[in-house]
Amino acid sequence: MFAFILRRIYQSVLVLFCVSLVVFAILYLSGDPIQMLLPADASQEQIDEMRRHLGLDEPFWAQYLSFLRNALQGDMGRSFTFNQPAVKLILERAPATLELAVSAMILAILLGIPAGLFAAVKPKSWLTQIIMSGSLFGISLPVFWMGIMLIMVFSVFLGWLPSSGRGQTASFGGIQLGFLTWDGCKHLLMPAFTLAIHQVAMIVRLVRAGMMEVMLQDYIKFLRAKGLSERRVVLVHALKNIMIPVVTIIGLQTGYTIAFAIVTESIFAWPGMGKLVIDAIHSLDRPVILAYLLVVALMFVFINFMVDLTYSFLDPRIRLK
């Protein structure tokens, strides 16, 4: 177990290093931020001065090494546009994005697993027809369209839910969280649901397919032959057997929802990392982009680590090495 954790940390560092190198190289090749930062009529001296000031006059390797040296101390440089530490900018907005992504995944799990189970156990029910065609819609409809439709219905026509922003937040351990206040919950509901639709559809299909396969296994028949109730057979035995692929997908999708929250954040004007990064990309604000990508990569690594840990609880045949 300890060896496993050590190895994962070592692997994670390697992954983060590679990500930083690749991203740094792409950004280096993708244009000169100076042109974005200074007015078009700036003199050559001003440009040279700015370049020196930002360290952009040095060769690629020198720039990368100095970035790396600072990054190891938690300093990813200052945003060119905001003139603030990039890490600080990202971390200020990370809770909003994480809250949105995690709420979306919880919603997806709470809706997706029961719906998938039902569809597998009662294949002929009319509700199953609805669940399955619903999940087909969920997979095929574009997220932004769903978001706009929700706003039309619930904000414009019915006026039940606010259409933008995070609303009131409350502080919990120094982090601002929206779901702690009623107003925050109301603001969170639509964006989280929009982000969850796709995931619900995926989970429903995965759970149903897995269940239908597991229910044909001999051990299910043997459990019934022992006299166990159908509820116990399905909810305890079959469910645990399909959890490995489900947890894998939940893990992967949590990563994606963090990364792709950008679209939802722009629809609902959600003050998360997404908006900041879009602006940073437009202005080639290198430190912010780098800090964002490294933070997201770190989250992916962490989620995968959690998924692997969960495996060993779910399936005794999997040993952590």
Binding site: Q217, D218, K221, F222, A225, K240, D315, P316
Partner: peptide, 15 residues
């Protein structure tokens, strides 16, 4: 009571 053919598959592998 009933006993099945294949002991590889008659017991739930994750309990």
């Amino acid at each position: 009571a009933m006993v099945f053919q294949d002991p590889q598959t008659s017991l739930d592998p994750v309990f």
